[in-house]
Design a protein around this nucleic acid. Structure first.
Lengths: 111, 111
DNA sequence: TCAACACTTAAGTTGCAGCTTAAGTATCTG
DNA sequence: CAGATACTTAAGCTGCAACTTAAGTGTTGA
């Protein structure tokens, strides 16, 4: 059960299109910093800073071998975010369904 | 098929604990601005500003009747966020599963 | 009619996110 | 060992997010 601050970090990390592009790339497999940077129109230090945000959120881990840092997506924070969304979306939709029933009962069910 | 900017807005809106608390409240049913503000330790204008972020993201809609503004959670942006997460988490986990298979084949399956 | 209520608008402060350039530090490769 | 590669560190800039207080506006109930 993810702490509030963990969700803060994960949602914030995913709120930037450059970082989501990095996550999309990593969802297809590990990648080096340069590979993550390649499609992005910004300097390498900027990419490294985005990577820092992703790592601090736990969404991405990395290890350096030789001069190459290899990055990987971590499943747990993605699951925590999905659980939070799913729970509250489900609440909402259950309620909307019931509302539909109530309106049907009040005004007559549609054919 | 949510545009990138829409996902930006939705993730950003959900990256704040006060705003998530508002969304949690609204997932249980419509509420007035004062009701949303009640559990939050901040001024009413601050709450209204958070509400503005939620509305600009499409997550929340509101209408004013008399002097009361009633707010509702909208399902579509929640679904869009959930779809994005689910898609990339699924990619990741499919890959991790295959990796497990490969490791099993290479090093011998665990008993 | 007038005071309480439920916001709303305006204006200002503070801090930090998201870049930049410049100058490092290791690690390979020929 | 020199030059290319793959980051890394440092420092500084700009804009906007997240509040605040103060002063509105329109609505309602006694």
């Amino acid at each position: 059960m993810a702490a509030t601050a963990d969700l803060d970090d994960a949602f914030l990390a995913l709120a930037d299109p450059s970082r989501r592009s990095m996550v999309e790339r990593l969802s297809r497999g590990p990648a080096s910093v340069s590979e993550l940077a390649e499609p992005l129109a910004m300097s390498l230090p900027a990419v490294v800073q985005h990577l820092g945000v992703l790592q601090r959120s736990g969404l991405v881990s990395s290890e350096k071998v030789g001069r190459v840092r290899t990055c990987r997506l971590q499943p747990e924070p993605m699951q925590a975010v999905e659980r939070w969304i799913a729970a509250h979306r489900a609440d909402l939709e259950r309620r909307l369904d019931r509302l539909g029933d109530v309106l049907d009962e009040t005004y007559g069910r549609k054919q």
